[in-house]
């Protein structure tokens, strides 16, 4: 089964204990190094709270389940606050290859909702395997160069 960051935005977050809706998914935070979903940001702005992926009870197609409301926590450090502010959101972010060429913006990211592992990125209308993801931050998503050698060995002055 496959889910996507774009499809997950807006999905309700429900407590398994009380069946209450606790909020809606604002976006998902990605660990670029591990190439997996790290956390879910619930709500927006100053009310935003986070749930670590490991603390989810289930990531379903209609609702994201948590055991109870205590699974949601306030942003604790700079990275949490950047995530809560939406600065780390992948969808809509500029994508650069490691040679410093812009590839377009990230349209969507596919992931496995069971394991949280990233599968594929769509960048500028083109499918890119998640294994190409090197880094992700406030300015850009960095992808490995298409060059099979993997090293900067270009032949074009302009490229």
């Amino acid at each position: 089964m496959t889910d996507s960051l774009r499809a997950a935005a807006g999905r309700k977050v429900v407590s398994r204990a009380s069946a209450d809706t606790l909020g809606a998914v604002s976006h998902l935070v990605v660990d670029a190094k591990a190439r997996r979903i790290q956390a879910v940001v619930v709500g927006k702005g100053r009310k935003a709270r986070l749930v670590e992926w490991e603390h989810l009870a289930g990531f379903g197609p209609d609702a994201v389940m948590v055991t109870d409301e205590s699974a949601l926590r306030e942003p604790a450090d700079d990275r949490d606050r950047a995530a809560a502010d939406g600065k780390l959101e992948l969808v809509g972010k500029r994508a650069l290859n490691e040679l410093g060429t812009e590839l377009g913006t990230v349209d969507d990211v596919l992931f496995d909702p069971e394991a949280g592992a990233l599968e594929q990125l769509t960048v500028g209308g083109r499918a890119v395997p998640a294994t190409a993801l090197i880094g992700s931050g406030s300015y850009a998503v960095v992808l490995a160069s298409d060059d099979p050698a993997g090293a900067p060995a270009p032949t074009s002055v302009t490229g």
């Binding site: 670029a32 190094k33 650069l96 490691e98 410093g100 090197i134 880094g135 992700s136 931050g137 406030s138 300015y139 850009a140 998503v141 960095v142 002055v157 302009t158």
Partner: peptide, 20 residues
Amino acid sequence: MTTAQIRGLPVVTVLGGDDV
């Protein structure tokens, strides 16, 4: 690229995705 095109470019971290 000419140096005129290089001046003003952001310096971006590969691992962090940040413009430093």
